[in-house]
Design a protein around this nucleic acid. Structure first.
Lengths: 121, 121
DNA sequence: ACTTTTTGTTAGGTTTCCCTTACAATCAAA
DNA sequence: TTTGATTGTAAGGGAAACCTAACAAAAAGT
């Protein structure tokens, strides 16, 4: 199991790639309000886990394994966000913030049930 | 803001007190599968924060401030548990485990909306 | 081409939460 | 009451995730 923070980073890397945006280490630092050295360290960890290929200034590439990992988290995020925003009528920012936190700790089975809840509306 | 772990411990202390059970440091260690020294340290931290009065072998007492803190978390726990168990039909153990994790990261406003959801059934 | 800025890394710290080992005090049981 | 188990604490350590300061390489601006 990958840590919450690494989940956040791989998620971000995946989303950038999907939008074909050049993502640099410093962008991750800004996004999460952490220092460049902390990002440096995290990217090395992600590369160790074969979730990305990290080539310093030459770019960050996500591996197939990384894509799988990222998609799992993004799926949870999306289902939680939709539940909060569309069903509970929570404002977008709060819905997103809470999804960001809960996506790391909720079990798959609970996510599936929340998804069904939406479908039976 | 108190940390997740300290929230867990104060919650446990409060529940024991409510059931008038004698709670020892070692019981907390067993409950959370952590070592006695770790509990020792945590109880000193909780005492520093005025959430408990810790007297070693002579017992653990929860303060008014501690009760307030514990009740906030337990309220979230209960609402989440009910939502998972009664509405989503998740099994008791999974419902409880997920409530235990999410109670530490979910915003009050989201909890309130989940509570309303239940009431309009 | 030559500065200046941006970027990534090194080195050295901090905090939180956990561990084991070892010891002393208390409690229970014989 | 002595013996043995239980409980709490002290000492010393570790991993994760963060930090700042300092530096070198690369990119951008003039």
């Amino acid at each position: 199991m990958i840590s919450k923070r690494l989940e956040d980073y791989i998620e971000e890397i995946y989303l950038a790639k999907k939008e074909k945006k050049e993502l640099k280490a410093v962008d991750i630092a800004n996004k999460f309000n952490i220092s460049r050295p902390t990002v440096s360290e995290a990217l090395i960890k992600l590369a160790d886990l074969d979730l990305i290929v990290y080539k310093g200034r030459k770019g960050i590439e996500i591996t197939d394994k990384g894509v799988v990992e990222a998609q799992k988290i993004i799926k949870k995020h999306r289902i939680l966000y939709d539940f909060f925003y569309k069903i509970l009528k929570i404002d977008k920012k709060t819905a997103n913030d809470n999804a960001c936190r809960i996506e790391h700790v909720i079990d798959d089975i609970v996510i599936e049930k929340i998804k069904e809840l939406k479908e039976n509306d």
